[in-house]
Design a protein around this nucleic acid. Sequence first.
DNA 1: CAGTGGTCTAGACCACCTG
DNA 2: AGGTGGTCTAGACCACTGC
Lengths: 245, 245
Amino acid sequence: MSQRESSYSTKELVNQLLKDIQQGVIQGADGQLPTEPELMKQYQVTRYTLRQALKNLANLGYIYQAHGSGTFARPHHVEGAISLQNNVGLTAEMARQGKIVKTTGISQRIVPLSKAAFVPESQKLAQDTELISVIRQRTLDDEPFLVEHSYYLKSMVGEIPDSALKGSLFAFIDQKPGLKVGFIDSVIECEMITGTPARFFNLADGSPSLVVRDDSYLSSGKLFAFSKIFYDFRKTKFFMLKKMH
Amino acid sequence: MSQRESSYSTKELVNQLLKDIQQGVIQGADGQLPTEPELMKQYQVTRYTLRQALKNLANLGYIYQAHGSGTFARPHHVEGAISLQNNVGLTAEMARQGKIVKTTGISQRIVPLSKAAFVPESQKLAQDTELISVIRQRTLDDEPFLVEHSYYLKSMVGEIPDSALKGSLFAFIDQKPGLKVGFIDSVIECEMITGTPARFFNLADGSPSLVVRDDSYLSSGKLFAFSKIFYDFRKTKFFMLKKMH
DNA sequence: CAGTGGTCTAGACCACCTG
DNA sequence: AGGTGGTCTAGACCACTGC
């Protein structure tokens, strides 16, 4: 761990603690971390900030806190799995595991809602709502991995430059002034696929696929996009940590 | 909303707020809830307790808070979906939606780890660890829904009476003194099934299934069970809310 | 600029685990 | 009994939104 002049914000403390945990410089041989009073002193933060940071790390699966016993580092995650709770984006998350996500196929066009292949799960929009339809094929370590079909509400996000389509569309939206992503409703299911997705994965029509349906909202609560992502079921595992209380 | 003598705990406040939101007695026509100072006054709690409760409700998808604008009720969840974040158990969650989960087939036996059909994702145990193997077939509204194969560490949970096998094994564990469930690692994937699960679902060998692999830990951090649940992919949707920040 | 939720401080007391 | 994390109080200041 390192000393600092100004005090840590929760976010900074999360990053610093994570670094120190991964380098093994704060936990003992049994994985136990210092007590909260000691961590408060070491990192010069109040208990509130410390506990916010520890809660974040627990939600990400890096530590757990046992009432009456102490705080402990956890052995690492399931290999190759995609965290459902993590929100750094797919590319960044895979990069952490040394894997590379590339976008190999893109198409963009404008359609009215009435012509969309699917609609949001829990929201009604006018039939003539203008949508930007984006279909992307993406690979993981140069092998077919997913087909993503997204609809963005044109009235909310404006134009999407081709340069933004190759990387994280999510980051592009978040950067625009006045557009802050708030939350995403996800539905995970298993569906038979045909046509383009099946061919991209080199699977027969009628093969299964792990499918994630997302409805994306701004922090203001307004829907700005909805999408459907087809994953190659042979290469995909989703991971999450459920906490009891 | 109702008046109370003693002040609410966070958990009680969550339940009370949820009731008041679902009955529509606190939000306006546009779904906006009173401001935090007003809610503090109405429910006689401090801001800390109130915000803990609101955070819980937001994580469950019932409300969202928009910085600078206010707190709003959200339209309801995806029909028939199983929340990945909810921890009341499958039976109770389905009951909320008016659906009934029954256990139709049970088998229990003792096996060593070396004979288990699968092992925990991220933990090594001795090959001779004694396990209680439990296989259960469960229906949703009297139609085949899932096949669950669980292994419990005998040294930790002791005997499991037949009476406990019909309902929530989870609740049975949690009730035993000294056994408090802490967290569960879940991995979701899509897998081809054959044999018993396929026949239970009336599907051909090689049909897909939505599979959830759980590793269950006590609050002390010790693994006490691991399981694999096969869901009929035609009837299963998982739901979760991802929050950004 | 007024009003909203978001972050942080400082401190008290409670509940749980271990010796 | 002593030490751990969990909950709660009371209050300050910051950041964002909308008029």
